[in-house]
Write a protein that binds this DNA or RNA. Sequence first.
DNA 1: AACAACTTTGCAACTCAGTTGCATAAACTT
DNA 2: AAGTTTATGCAACTGAGTTGCAAAGTTGTT
Lengths: 135, 135
Amino acid sequence: MVNQDDILNSRHIKPTAMRELVLKVLSEQNTAFSLADLEKKFEKADRATLYRTLKTFEENKLIHSIDDGTGSVKYALCKETCQCKPEDLHVHFLCTKCQHTYCLNDIAIPTISLPVNFKLETINMVVKGISINCI
Amino acid sequence: MVNQDDILNSRHIKPTAMRELVLKVLSEQNTAFSLADLEKKFEKADRATLYRTLKTFEENKLIHSIDDGTGSVKYALCKETCQCKPEDLHVHFLCTKCQHTYCLNDIAIPTISLPVNFKLETINMVVKGISINCI
DNA sequence: AACAACTTTGCAACTCAGTTGCATAAACTT
DNA sequence: AAGTTTATGCAACTGAGTTGCAAAGTTGTT
């Protein structure tokens, strides 16, 4: 098993106790995680600290954020090699019943040919529907 | 020119003075419009009324909503024939400089082959980058 | 035209996600 | 160990979205 500190260091994030705990929780999830979800896991931690921890992780590409339209931004761990460039991006799936958001890591976002007057930077693609667990 | 009331009636929305005004403003835009944008256009109208007007329009598929990740949902007129089914959907473009969101009506959302355990209902696809007007 | 029934509007208030300032605590530097 | 930088905790605020309720407007019936 890979050491949490190694992961943090490899992304140039100083490993603090708080950050190790947050990383641990994130790596135990199989669906994306909101700030509110995270708060529930840490009865005694401060919302602002968790918020800034997520921001730090995101800035350093340890996690990526997903805007799934539920009103709260969710986060999920990036793959080790991820640089969050367009070619690294994948599709996300939001279950409209349980509100869980899944990373479909194996489904790359299709290439789009934009009109010439638009220059692409990134793409957010969220498929919504029902996950079989919820039928 | 098509009559506002005819448009409202064709979507089974009772034409009131307020709704005609909102529809008029919406049809004059070439980018998607948020509730806050709408408020600015009507110094004296109430936010809740505008909010409910947009909701009514959306429920009746006169407009569609776009979650572009800016934190405020935007709205744009549907094409006459639109029923907001997956095959009616198009890609949206958010300019990260001016925050305007464009409907790319001619770019349909590509078909995705989902894992068998997910049943598709709808897709939100937002391409982000710079519009040439903003360079 | 007058009445009742229903719909829309305006006002006020509230929720919740996200965010920031500031003081304290912890970690790092020499 | 002293001083500098960085992270954390608390409090407070912003802004989008939303709801309850009463007043105003609309529609249908006689």
